[in-house]
Amino acid sequence: MEYYAEVTVQLKDGMLDPEGSTIKRALEHLGYSPKDVKSAKKFIITIESESIDKAKDTVDEMCRRLIANPVIHDYSIIMREA
């Protein structure tokens, strides 16, 4: 089976996020008052695997080994069938 994994990588809570805070300021210039803006990166990975669980395990390993930096990032994975 083929699966899509949607991986979102963002800075851990409390870490300085200059891109997020710059966007927040710009939104304020437009008259909005967001409580917080965080920037994040999204990756969409297509993967073939026996099961959705196995596919997720592999993607999780990819995140730990390359896609996220454990020192500064949290990540989340959403799986669906392709």
């Binding site: 800075l11 870490m15 300085l16 200059p18 710059t22 930096n69 020192v71 500064i72």
Partner: peptide
């Protein structure tokens, strides 16, 4: 070197980006 875990920590975007 930090990404390779040969040195500790991480280098992030400058505080003034």
């Amino acid at each position: 070197l930090t990404e390779a875990s040969l040195l500790d920590g991480a280098l992030m975007t400058n505080s003034y980006p």
